[in-house]
Amino acid sequence: MESLKVYILVANRTYSDGIRSALGLAVENHYGYPVIFNGEFPSFSTYMKENISWIMDMEGQVYSCGAEVPEETYDAELEENLIKEINLKELGEAMRDADFIIPYGLPKQTNEPPPACAE
């Protein structure tokens, strides 16, 4: 089966599950590229970091578009950040080669989350 290049685009802070979805495709021998927009990062649990690392091991990559990569995902052993920065134009050009582009979940919220769900 042909390995496909799949970009999963996450614009909303509650949809970082797109990373798990990309991992699901990576284990099916596809290339998964989740992209987190504008710093809408999940909290980096051990589970989440392992998923990000596993996507890299499967020759995919988690990207940050529109925000610096978070410090929490720096891997001291690999001496690099597990998340790579990409700007909007680079992303657009990269996605011209994609087999599938998947805007995941909901668009970005315009309002700030209340304390009840902000963390």
Partner: peptide, 18 residues
């Protein structure tokens, strides 16, 4: 488009459609 496209979406669409 499921909702009105943002400026970012419009930029990406322009590149993809080129």
């Amino acid at each position: 488009y499921r909702s009105a496209p943002s400026e970012e979406t419009k930029t990406l669409v322009e590149i993809l459609n080129r």
